[in-house]
Simulated scan of single mutants.
Amino acid sequence: MHEVEVKGILSAQNGMNIYRGCTHGCIYCDSRSKCYQMNHDFEDIEVKVNAPKLLEEALRRKRKKCMIGTGSMTDPYIHLEEKLENTRKCIELIYTYGFGLAILTKSARIVRDLDLLKKINEKTKCVVQMTLTTYDENLCKIIEPNVSTTKERFEVLKVMRDNGIPTVVWLSPILPFINDTEENIRGILDYCIEAKVHGIICFGMGLTLREGNREYFYKKLDEHFPGMKSRYIESYKYAYEIPSPNNDRLMSIFRTICKAHGIMYDIKECFDYLHKFEEKNQYEQLMLSGLE
C-alpha cells in the first residue's frame, strides 16, 4: 500500500472511491483497464488518507441531501479496510450528516458495519449491493480467489434482509464457456429469491475486455482453463463486448424468474432506485428501529 492526499473525493454523481487498486484478485476485473490511468501496481493499494476529511467537507457544503455511492471501481471492503477502517469512517459521516448510502461490495466484511447501515436505513435509505457471478463455490474460488465466496455473500444478503436493509445484486460478469450455464444462473437467482433482494442489475450474459484487463484475464485463463484463451480469441478477436452465445436463452430465464418473484430487473429502474434519496418520516423510523 501507499498513501496519497487527493484534492477531491465525490464525483459529479456523488460517487466515491476510498481506495484505488484491489487485492481480491478477480480474474475479469475491468478496473485493471489502462484507460483508468492507475499509475501503480493494481495490488499496491492507493490509500486516500484524507478521504474522510474531504467527504465531511463535501457533505457540509451540499444544500440538498442525496445518496452517496461507493464501490464501483474499488471494493470498499478490501483486506486493508480491516486495519484502516476508512470506509467505516466515511459511512459514519454519511450517517451523521443525514445522507443515504448505496454501497457495492463482494466482501462479507461489510457485516462489521451493520450497526451504521441500520442507522442510515432508519433515517433515510441504505442499499447494500452485492456482486454474484458464480453459484459453484469451487469455480468462485478460481475466478474470484481472495474474496468472500458466493455462499458467504448470500449469507450477507440474508443478514441485510433480516435487518430490513434493501439489497440489489449485480449479476455480472458471466464468462462465456465458463459460467454461462442455466444451472449457474438459476442457482444465483435462487439465492436472490431466498434473500428477498429488491433488484438485480444484469446488462446481459457476458463480459467486457479492454487493454489492461484483457491481458490479465487471458493470463489467468491459461493458468486455470487450458485452451480457453484460444477459444476466446477465435470467437471474439479483440472485441470490447464479449457476449455469451447463450445470452438470449439465459436472459429470457432471468427476466421470467424476476417477474415471477417481483424482483426489479429493468436497469434504468434499478439505477433510479439506487440514486433516489428517501427520507423516512418519524413513524417509519420508529417502526424500523423497533421502538413502535
Rank of each mutant, 00 (worst) to 15 (best):
R32T: 09
L209V: 00
M67W: 00
K141T: 14
L291Y: 07
Y218I: 09
C202K: 01
I91G: 10
V127P: 00
K64L: 03
N179D: 15
D115G: 00
V128C: 10
D162M: 04
K48C: 14
T150W: 04
L139S: 10
P145Q: 03
L59M: 12
E82C: 11
W170D: 02
K220W: 11
R249S: 10
E269A: 13
L221H: 11
H261Q: 07
S235M: 14
D136H: 10
G204Q: 00
F177A: 10
V159C: 03
I253E: 03
C126M: 09
S31Y: 15
L139H: 04
D75G: 04
H275Q: 05
E183H: 10
V147C: 07
E234M: 04
L101E: 07
H79D: 09
T256F: 03
T256Y: 07
V49R: 15
L80Q: 13
T74C: 10
R112L: 06
T181R: 07
S31P: 06
G98A: 09
T70E: 02
S230C: 12
S11T: 14
Y97Q: 05
D115F: 01
A239S: 08
C202F: 00
K48M: 14
E223R: 12
C29A: 12
S148Q: 06
F217A: 05
N138V: 10
C192N: 01
S172P: 00
M73C: 14
I174H: 07
T131P: 05
Y265H: 15
I94G: 11
P173N: 07
Q285N: 03
I257T: 13
K83L: 09
E85F: 00
S33I: 11
L250P: 00
G164Y: 13
L117R: 05
M67G: 01
N163M: 09
I193Y: 08
D266S: 09
T87M: 04
K89A: 11
Y232T: 09
L221W: 10
G69D: 00
F271R: 01
N39H: 10
E92I: 02
C258A: 11
